[in-house]
Design a protein around this nucleic acid. Structure first.
Lengths: 216, 216, 216, 216
DNA sequence: AATGAATGAGCTTTCATTCAT
DNA sequence: AATGAATGAAAGCTCATTCAT
C-alpha cells in the first residue's frame, strides 16, 4: 500500500516474497530449519514449490533473509524506542529500561520468531551467514551504544559495553525461552519488570538497589 | 591398555563409548547436529560406523546421551562448588558468585561443549528429548535453589527464582558465546569477573555500586 | 505422445506409473523382492530413483500394487471367460475347464508374473499386505463359485468348494512352475490339456475317466 | 541317543548343528528368510552368533541345509510309506493314496516346515541352491515313480508322470496353505480325505465317481 | 570349540533443486 | 511469472560376516 501506486506487478512480487517469509517463519518455528521442507513452506504460502526459488536462491537463504529482515525491522524499532526515551537525568538508565522492555514485549508477542531465532542460532552453526551475524551484531549494537554512552556519562558501572550488551541480551532471551518453552508459562508484565530490574540492579539486595541507594 | 593401570576389558567397553561421545562432541560442535554424519563421528572416534550403533540406537541418541552425560557431570561439579562456598555472612551471594564463575570457567575451557549446547538448544526444537530437558532443568535448578534460599534469607532482592536462574544462565552463556564466537576474543579473568559483577549488582552505578556499597 | 491418439498428460502420469510397475515385474521376477533394488527398478523403467517414490510410498508398496493390479485384471478376465463358457449341459464342467485353461495360458504367456506371484507368496511372509490377500482371495473365489454351483447342480462331486478351489489353483501353478522353472521345458497345449483333464477327472483310470468311461 | 555311545564330542557337535537347524526352522518360519537374522537364530538355538558360522558357511546355507535335510528325511519316510502300501490289485492307486495322505499329515503336523518350504520357494528365487532343487526333485520323484508305474500298469490314465506329480504336489500344498494360512482353519481328516479323493478321481461326478466306478 | 564385539557394504528413503511447460 | 514432476546425492541404519580372545 505504501510501497507504490501500481499494484499490477511490483506489489504482487513484493507480496509473494513476504508471503513466503511469513510462511517460512511459521514452518521454521514449528519444525526447525532442517525438518522444515521447502514444499511445506510453499504450501503454507499458497504458492508453488518452484516459486520459492524465484525469490530465494535456496532454502537456507530463506532463513537468512527471514532473520535478517525481521532483525532489521526490530533494530529500527528498537532504535526509535531508545531515542524516544528520556532526555533528562538518568537518561541512559531509562533508555536501557526501554530497550529491555521492548525486547521482552517482542518475544512475548512473537513466539514464532523467538523460536526461529533461538533455535536457529545453532541450527546453522558457525556457518550462519555473515549477513545474519551482522544483523545480529547491529541489533546488539543498539544496546551496546546505550551502555557505552551511559557508562561514559557515569550512569553505569564500568563494564565492557560489548560484554554487557551480550549478557543482557542473553538474560532477556533465556528468561523468555526458559519460562515460555521450558516451563510452559506465559510472559506477564511482572516478568518483564523483573527482568528489567535484574539487568539494572542485579540480584543482590544490599548492593543498594537503585532505589534504595540512590540516596541524596 | 594404554590409559591406566587396570584395563581388563572394562575400560575397553567404557572406552569405546566414551571415545564415541568425545568424537561426537567434536563433530557436533564443528558441524552442528544435522550436518554431522555418523560416519564422520565414527571416523573421528577411530571406530567403524556400525560400532556407533552398538552403543547408541541412533544418531540422535548420541546427542542426547552427550548432553545428558556432560550436563550431569557439570551439575554435580556445580553443586560441589556451590556447597563448598561460603558459610558466613553473605553466604548465598558468595555461592552465586561461585556458581557463575564456575560456569564461565567451564565455558572458557570447553568451547566445544558450549557450541554443542548452545547450538543444539534449537537444533532439535521442541522434540529435544525429555531426558535432555530434565538434565538442563536439573542444572538450572542448582542455581535456582541458591537464589531461592538467598532470597528467603533476605540477601537477594525479591525476584522469581526460576526466572532469575534462567536469566542468569542466559547472561553467562550469551556473554561467553557473544565474545567467543561472535567477537572472536578469548575469555579472560576480567570477563569472568565482569559477568559475576553484572549478575550480582546490575549495570546501574548509582544503585550503589556493588563495590562501593558493600564495604563497611 | 507416442502411445495413442489422445495423450494430453493423462497418459504421461498413467504411463509413468505403469512403466514402473512393468519394470518392477521384470526385476522382482528376476531377482526376487529382497534382492531387487529400487534403483534397478527405476533404471529399468527409465526414470530416476526418486520418481518411484512419487508414485509409490515404498518398495513394498510397489510389490503390493503390482500383485493387486495384475490380479484384479486377471480376475476380471477370468470372470469373463467363465461367464462366456457353456450354457447347456455340463455347464459348470465346461466353465471350470475354461477357468483352468485360462490360467495355464496366462502362466504360459507371462513367466514373469508367475515368478513374482509364486515367489512372493512367501517372500513377505504372513505380513503380505491385506490388500494382496484379498486380491488373491477374490481370484480364487471365481473358481470357488463355479465349483460351488457345479456341486449344487450335481455336476461335481461333493467336495468343500473352498478346498477344491485352492487345490486346483495349486495344481495349475505347481504344474506350470514345476515344468517351466523346475524342468526347464515350455508349456504346450498338451500340458494344458492334461492339467485340465487331471483336475476334472483325477488320475485313476477306472474312476471312469471321462474318456475311458464314456466310451463304448 | 541312537547315534552312538560316546557323547563327549561327536554328539555334542551333531547336537549343536541340529539345534541350529531347529532354531532356523522356527525363525525362518516366523519371519521369512530375509527378515530372520542370524543373531535370532543363534539366540533361539542357545548358542553364540559365531557358532552358527562354525557349522554353516553362511545364513543361506543354513536354509539350504535345512530344506535339504528335512526333505531327505521326508523323502525317505515317503518311500517307506509308499512301499509299504498295497501289493495286490489297484496297487498304485493305493500307493498314491498313501503318498498324498502322508504329505497332508506332515503338513498338518509341521506348520513351520510348511511355511519355510512354501515361503522360501520364491524367497531365494531361481538362485535357490542346486542342492535344494535336487532335494525337491527327489521328493517329487517318489510320487512320479508311483505314477509312472501305475500308468504303465494301466491303473492310471495316460498323463505325463512328471507333470502329474508336480500337479498333485501343488494340489496338496496349496490346499494345505490355503486352508491353514489363507483361511485360518485347521486341517482335519476330512480335508485329507477330500484332497486324496480329488487327486485320484477329479472333481467331475459323472465321470464315474471314484466310489461308484471302483466297484467290484 | 565357542563367542560376540566390531565392521562396512549396501540398502531404502528424503528432499533441495532444476527445468520444461 | 509460476508451477510441480522429475531427479539423484546423500545419509541413517541393518546385519551377515570376521576374528581376536
Amino acid at each position: 500500500m505504501e510501497r507504490g501506486q501500481l499494484d499490477g506487478g511490483e506489489t504482487k512480487e513484493a507480496g509473494k516474497r513476504d508471503l513466503i517469509l511469513d510462511a517460512a517463519q511459521q514452518v521454521f518455528s514449528k519444525k526447525g530449519f532442517h525438518q522444515a521442507t521447502v514444499e511445506e513452506i510453499a504450501e503454507t504460502a499458497g504458492v508453488g514449490k518452484g516459486t520459492v526459488y524465484l525469490y530465494f536462491p535456496s532454502k537456507r537463504e530463506v532463513l537468512v533473509a527471514l532473520i535478517e529482515e525481521r532483525l532489521k525491522e526490530l533494530t529500527r524499532a528498537l532504535e526509535e524506542r531508545v531515542e524516544a526515551a528520556g532526555a533528562g537525568l538518568r537518561n541512559y538508565t531509562e533508555k536501557l529500561r526501554q530497550a529491555i522492555s521492548f525486547q521482552m514485549e517482542v518475544l512475548r508477542r512473537s513466539q514464532d520468531f523467538l523460536t526461529v531465532m533461538s533455535g536457529d542460532i545453532g541450527e546453522l552453526g558457525q556457518e550462519l551467514d555473515k549477513r545474519t551475524r551482522e544483523a545480529r551484531r547491529a541489533f546488539v549494537a543498539v544496546v551496546e551504544a546505550v551502555i557505552r554512552e551511559g557508562t561514559r556519562k557515569g550512569e553505569f558501572r564500568n563494564l565492557d559495553p560489548c560484554l554487557a550488551a551480550y549478557a543482557i541480551e542473553g538474560m532477556i532471551i533465556h528468561a523468555a525461552v526458559g519460562l515460555t518453552i521450558g516451563e510452559g508459562t506465559q510472559l506477564t508484565d511482572e516478568h518483564v519488570s523483573q527482568v528489567v530490574d535484574l539487568c539494572l540492579h542485579g540480584i543482590v539486595r544490599g548492593s543498594g538497589s537503585a532505589h534504595a541507594c540512590n540516596g541524596p
